[in-house]
Simulated scan of single mutants.
Amino acid sequence: MTESNVTETKIEGLTADTLRKALLLASPELSRFDPLRRIICHDAFSKGHCGWSQLVGNYEGSLDSMLPGYAQHTNAMLSTLGHWEAGSHGGYDSSYALKIATRPVRGAQNVAIKRLTMRQRAPIRFEMYFTFKPEATEPRLSETDVRSVGFLFDLQGGDSDKDAERVMPHLRFLNAADGQHLQKWQFKRETTTFTKLGAENKTESHYHLSNEGWQDLPGGNQRLCYNEIATKVNWSYLRFDFDLAKMRPIAFQCNDRTFDLSQFDSIRIPAMKNLWCMLNFGLFAETDVDKRAFLYVDSICISGDF
């Protein structure tokens, strides 16, 4: 048997799962993630916005009918993580990251969203490398200037599902409030009251990211890396697994910690008439002072077990 035949025999003997893992490990960009069987999207923001855009609120007749929470939002940017000391920090392994920046007003929020639809009701995995910091406008640590950063899903079953509902898992890292360094993960079960917009009775809106209604995740205290001055950053890893068939969470991890989700639940509201098979993902930041807060995301991998 020739050497080439031996090599062919070894390759033929490998399982599909082994080959898949080998290909993932051979990719510097993908090997930092642990995706499920099928990669839905891999967003490396060195390539561009990758479909992440401003969360624009509903309106009818005029932009002035938009709820104030949404009216404050601006579009996500591509950033080199510039600062006044040394120029640019750069991304995880490139020059750019996605930047979600608030306005410089205490309590201001901003949200970026990626809008997809689901092809199968199966477990999915959301992974990202992220960091956060306040705008470095003064030579001090400013570790309590960012109130929170987080992510959300906005999901709805298919138009043939008799029990379809709109399900919105929310998780945030509450870094600080009123100057107190809290550093804990929280989730949300309830949204705000729906408001009718316009005169045609076709559009309504709710601001589900309001600061009310957040609950502490059991055992959710975590001290994330925040470097010695406000211009420095360190990247953190996050993973959230969710079952689209059962509409329930499976697992949550940030860096070296995994968290108990037995008390976790999502915002649940009746299905809406035009959002079938919705599979949306959101990223958000909030400031606790009159200074901009920045959430930076280097890359995201969303995968599914189908």
Rank of each mutant, 00 (worst) to 15 (best):
M1Q: 02
E3C: 01
E3V: 05
L14V: 06
L14W: 13
T15L: 05
S27I: 02
L30A: 07
D34C: 07
C41W: 00
F45M: 00
F45K: 01
K47A: 08
H49F: 00
G51H: 06
N58L: 00
N58I: 00
E60R: 09
L63I: 06
P68I: 11
G69F: 01
T74H: 08
N75I: 07
W84G: 01
W84E: 02
Y96T: 04
I100G: 09
I100V: 15
A101P: 02
G107Y: 00
L116D: 14
Q120K: 15
A122Q: 14
P123C: 09
I124V: 15
R125V: 01
F132H: 13
K133T: 14
T144D: 14
S148K: 10
L152K: 07
D154H: 11
G158A: 08
D159W: 05
S160T: 14
S160N: 10
K162M: 04
M168E: 01
L171D: 01
R172C: 03
W185Y: 13
T192V: 04
F194V: 01
F194G: 00
G198C: 09
A199W: 10
K202G: 08
T203C: 12
T203R: 15
E204L: 07
N211H: 04
Q215T: 10
D216P: 05
P218Q: 09
P218C: 09
G219A: 13
N221Q: 12
R223N: 14
L224P: 13
N227D: 14
T231F: 03
V233S: 04
N234I: 04
R239Q: 15
D241N: 14
M247W: 03
P249Y: 02
F252E: 02
T258C: 08
Q263L: 08
I269W: 01
L275S: 11
L275E: 11
M278W: 04
N280K: 10
N280R: 12
G282E: 00
L283D: 03
D290A: 13
K291R: 15
L295A: 13
Y296A: 10
D298A: 13
C301F: 02
F306M: 09
F306H: 11
F306L: 13
